[in-house]
Design a protein around this nucleic acid. Structure first.
Lengths: 135, 135
DNA sequence: CAGGATCCATACCGATACTG
DNA sequence: CAGTATCGGTATGGATCCTG
């Protein structure tokens, strides 16, 4: 989106409000269901690697398919590194890249906000619920 | 998005991994297409209020419906305040609540990361693209 | 063990039409 | 002006089966 240093009065079309907006694209990625959790788990393990099955154990509820898809996306994005042990059975190890580690920081800020304020969000929702619960 | 159907039978690693994980629920919200942009625009205007139509002008590409839905969600969550001018035609003004303002800060960190690193993510994707010897 | 392929339910989102 | 209602396309994500 628009760099924080710039504050156009209004009507700043073109620049960073278009579909190529990097922030929207980033949110499209980390907004997918398992991505941020994968990053968190890998960040907690870092610099240790984590195997696929162990990752699945630590990410409660994720299916094999979704974990695979999520890791593929993160690997394509250069956020996660993938190392295959050519053994039988194969062992695949994942870890955050340096780039992925830099993303973990702002993501952690977001987690902190969530842990600190989501209860208040819930209360606001309950109040709205009550407001619409008319006779 | 929130997986309320899945209930892991065993305990999980930390309270943040269950379906009620506040971070995931937060990402479900700000991950929707227009939410983060609305927060950004309202934050830029803060403490000024912004009317519906003006909001739509500043959020390039958003439809009336999606803006309405987005603002309803943010209002229910207590992140956005809504003031209706009882005039004809009606005028509705929106602004970030103090809670919404606190969210803008970690969101800005995420934007900064995106502006700084998404180009590198794109390059990683292009490399993956080339590596895929398809068809 | 790790993941590909397939089917499918749902949610998101856009376009359009209609109100007070 | 500021919504609400409805329809439908599409992407996301889950369950299941299959493979090297």
């Amino acid at each position: 989106m628009t760099p924080s240093t710039r504050r156009p009065p209004h009507g700043n079309r073109g620049d960073l409000f278009d579909p190529q907006c990097p922030t929207r694209r980033l949110l499209d990625r980390i907004g997918t269901k398992w991505t941020s959790m994968a990053i968190k788990v890998l960040a907690e393990a870092s610099p240790q690697e984590v195997r696929f099955a162990e990752l699945q154990r630590r990410m409660t509820g994720v299916s094999q398919k979704m974990l695979s898809v999520t890791l593929q996306g993160l690997t394509r994005d250069g956020l996660v590194g993938r190392r295959v042990e050519a053994s039988v059975p194969p062992r695949v190890h994942y870890r955050l890249t340096p780039l992925g580690l830099t993303l973990e920081e702002p993501l952690a800020r977001l987690r902190e906000w969530a842990e600190e304020h989501m209860a208040e969000v819930d209360r606001a929702n309950q109040r709205s619920q009550e407001g619409t619960a008319d006779s």
